[in-house]
């Protein structure tokens, strides 16, 4: 018996009842082979980092269980046959330090990290050909902004406020690093 965890992504068109059904199926597969489900964590709907089968969202579910190794094959087989599963991953989890539910929801906060790279070269090294692509590039960047601006800015600010003001002045390097993402998204407006 070993501890495993499996994450699967369902198609966003699957409804609540459908999600429960899929979870139940996985449970049955595990328990049918004398495995034991130790936890079900629904991350819910979140954005995919890239489109899969023409969809940009997915419903994530993580299931932890203990079982023998033969269950994995059966799980994998069923996931592959199941049309509404976009992706799945089963790994051996050896008492992972992170609570499995601590990310979930929509987290596009790290987008700011990407945007810096995306718009950096806009003024500089452009050749004639690449210029045509740039408007499109900007558009995608602009569309992502509303979500990105709200979250990281709020987080960074609260982090900055927690520090005493005196420390803020002296450790200017540190605070500017912390405020980097916030200011980055600020200037791009």
């Amino acid at each position: 018996m070993r501890e495993y965890e499996t994450v699967f992504i369902l198609h966003p068109q699957v409804d609540e009842a459908g999600i429960e059904q899929e979870i139940e199926k996985v449970k049955q597969t595990i328990e049918g082979a004398e495995g034991e489900v130790t936890g079900v964590y629904k991350w819910g709907r979140r954005k995919l980092a890239y489109p899969i089968r023409k969809t940009r969202d997915g419903i994530y579910t993580l299931i932890r269980f203990r079982s023998g190794p033969e269950v994995l094959k059966e799980l994998d087989r069923r996931f592959k046959l199941n049309e509404s599963v976009l992706r799945h991953l089963t790994v051996h989890s050896d008492g992972e330090p992170h609570p499995p539910e601590h990310r979930g929801r929509d987290r596009r906060t790290e987008r700011s990290h990407f945007r810096r790279g995306g718009r950096g070269p806009a003024g500089g090294d452009g050749g004639g050909e690449t210029h045509e692509q740039r408007p499109a590039e900007r558009e995608t960047v602009a569309r992502e902004q509303p979500a990105a601006v709200e979250q990281p800015a709020a987080v960074e600010q609260s982090a900055a406020v927690e520090q005493p003001e005196a420390a803020e002045k002296t450790s200017a390097g540190e605070t500017s690093a912390a405020g980097d993402a916030a200011s980055g998204s600020g200037t791009s407006e």
């Binding site: 995919l48 980092a49 890239y50 995306g118 995608t140």
Partner: peptide, 16 residues
Amino acid sequence: KRARALALIPFVNDSY
């Protein structure tokens, strides 16, 4: 590599 497979992080950034 695992996170990429699950679309948690991108293989390539959209704008590239």
